[in-house]
Amino acid sequence: MKNTLFIQADKWGQIDFLFVDSNRVLEKSEIIKIVSGRKLLRGKYDFTISKSKEIFSEVIKKIPKGVLIKGQLNERDSSGRIANFTCFYTGKPKYLESYLESCLSQIGKSYNQKSIVFIKNSLINYHYFQIFIYVFSAALLSFIILKNT
């Protein structure tokens, strides 16, 4: 599956920013089609993010085949709100920054460093947690089998 990055247009009525991998999608109908892709798995998986209690907080959610990330940009929209991005990311945590940079540089935007540090740390922690569970499960099962043989 491909990485997808979405940024809402700065002003209502303008075309939204959408990248599939690092390629910007400019065709409006194509953007809508890709954004609607979320519907395909609806019912089976819930793709929505729980609303955070804070005014802004980064969100990372595990979804099948990747993670859904909401992070902050350095720019503001036409209403003065801090802009954010929504990203479906399938790559390794260490490449997240370079992926975002490759997309955002095309539209003259940049990510908030603090936001990315938080997201990267969460992804790395999750990665280690996964490894721990694998190793622990393997050790436990080995112990049970060896004990019974």
């Binding site: 809402q8 209502w12 929505t48 993010i49 609303k51 005014i55 902050q72 709100r81 801090i82 929504t86």
Partner: peptide
Amino acid sequence: SSSGKTTLFHYLTEGKILKNPDPTSLTGE
């Protein structure tokens, strides 16, 4: 966008008025 949907939702569910909420993410919340 930026019309006050999140502010209204937040008031209805939490009883508080949000000051400058961040834009809602693409996936919905």
